[in-house]
Simulated assay, not measured.
Amino acid sequence: MHPAVENVDVGRRVRTAREATGLSLRALARSLGISAASMSELETGKTRISVVRLGRIAEALGTSIERILDPEDVPPPVQSPEVGAGDWRHYEPLRLDPVLDAAMVVFLRTGYHGSSVRDLAAESGLSVSGIYHYHASKQVMLQRILDLGMDDLLWRCQAAVAAGADPVERFCLLVETMALFHTHRREVGFLAASEMRSLDPSARAGMTTRRTAQQRLVDAEVAAGAASGRFGTRTPREASRAVVTMCKAIAEWYNPAGPLSPDDVAGRYVQFAMGLVQYSPQHG
C-alpha cells in the first residue's frame, strides 16, 4: 500500500476510535502532549503515525492498537451534546455514555478521590474490564465530563454575546446564560467547581485557559459598559469576577424540585448582576 494511503487509512481509524469514545480532538492531543493542529494532521494522514505513537493513542482511548486498526471492532459511539447547535437558551438532557453517566453519579456522591473504578463499574452495571473498554482511566472520565461541560458553556456564552446589540444587553444575556447553565447543568457545574483541582496538571491548565476565555467575555462587556458611563462601577474587573463567581455558585444550592425555575433564577441573577456593576437607568 502507498504510504500516503496507509497514513490516511490509519488516521481515519484513529479518528473513528476517538469519536466512538466521545473524546474531543483537543482533549486527545492534550493527553498526548501535542497540539490540536498536530493531532489533526495525524488523523487526516498528513503526518505519519508511528507504532509507538499509535500505542500511546490506544492507551489514551482505553483500547488497543489491534482494535483501532480493525474497523469492525470499535466501541459504540457516545451521544454527546451538539455543541454550538441550536438555541442557547434550550437545554436537552446531557447525554453521556453509560460509563460517564455512572462516573458523574459516583463523583457527585463520594468525590473524585473517594471513588474507585469498581464503584463506577457497580454503578454502570459493567465489569471493571468493561469500564476500560470505554475509557482509559478515572482521570480521563473526569476530564471528558468537564470538557463537555466547558464546551457547552462556551458556545452558549458566545451565542449570547452575538445576540446582544450593546454592552448592557450583552452583559445581561451573558449573566442569563451562566445562570441557566448552572441550573440546567448543575451537576457538571458542581463538579467543575469542586473537582477541577483533581485534574492532572496539563488538563487543569487547559481547563483554566478555557475558563479564562469565558471570563473575558464578561470582562469585555463590563469594561465597555463602564467606559460608556452606563455602569457606574470604578472596579470593572473585580465586578466582572464577582458576577461570574456568583453565577457559578448557583450549582451548589439550586434544587430543580424547589420553588424557582431556571428562568426565575436567571431573571433574579441578572438583577443582582446589574446591581454589582452599578447600572444607572438614566444612562441607558
Rank of each mutant, 00 (worst) to 15 (best):
M1C: 12
H2N: 14
P3N: 07
E6M: 04
N7M: 11
V8N: 05
D9C: 12
G11K: 00
R12A: 03
R12W: 03
V14K: 00
T16E: 06
A20F: 08
S24N: 09
R26D: 09
L28V: 01
R30D: 15
S31Q: 10
L32M: 11
G33L: 14
M39K: 07
S40Q: 09
E41T: 03
K46D: 15
R48K: 14
I49D: 14
V51N: 15
R53V: 07
A60T: 00
I65C: 07
E72H: 09
D73Q: 12
D73T: 14
V74T: 09
P77A: 08
V78L: 15
S80F: 10
S80K: 14
E82M: 14
E82I: 11
A85R: 14
A85D: 12
D87T: 02
H90P: 00
H90D: 05
Y91G: 08
E92I: 06
R95Y: 06
D97N: 06
P98L: 09
V99M: 10
A102L: 08
A103V: 10
A103Y: 00
V105E: 02
T110R: 11
T110F: 05
G111L: 13
S115W: 04
L120S: 03
L120K: 10
A121S: 11
E123C: 13
E123K: 13
G125A: 06
S127I: 00
S127G: 06
S129C: 12
Y134S: 06
H135L: 12
A136L: 02
S137L: 05
S137H: 01
L142K: 04
I145F: 09
G149Y: 09
M150T: 10
D151G: 09
L154W: 04
A159H: 00
A162D: 07
G164S: 05
V168D: 01
R170L: 13
R170T: 04
R170Y: 06
R170K: 11
F171D: 03
L173V: 03
L174F: 10
V175A: 09
E176I: 12
M178R: 12
F181Y: 06
H182G: 06
H182Q: 08
H184P: 01
V188G: 00
L191E: 02
S198R: 12
P201F: 00
A203K: 07
R204Q: 13
R204E: 05
A205M: 14
A205K: 15
A205D: 11
M207S: 13
M207T: 08
R210W: 01
T212E: 09
L217T: 02
V218D: 07
D219T: 15
E221S: 09
A224K: 08
A224I: 03
G225C: 01
A226E: 05
R230N: 04
T235I: 06
P236K: 07
P236R: 04
R237Q: 15
T245K: 15
M246S: 13
A249R: 05
W253N: 07
P256F: 10
G258Q: 07
P259T: 12
S261D: 11
D263V: 10
V265A: 01
G267F: 00
V270K: 12
M274I: 03
M274K: 10
G275H: 14
G275N: 11
V277G: 01
P281G: 12
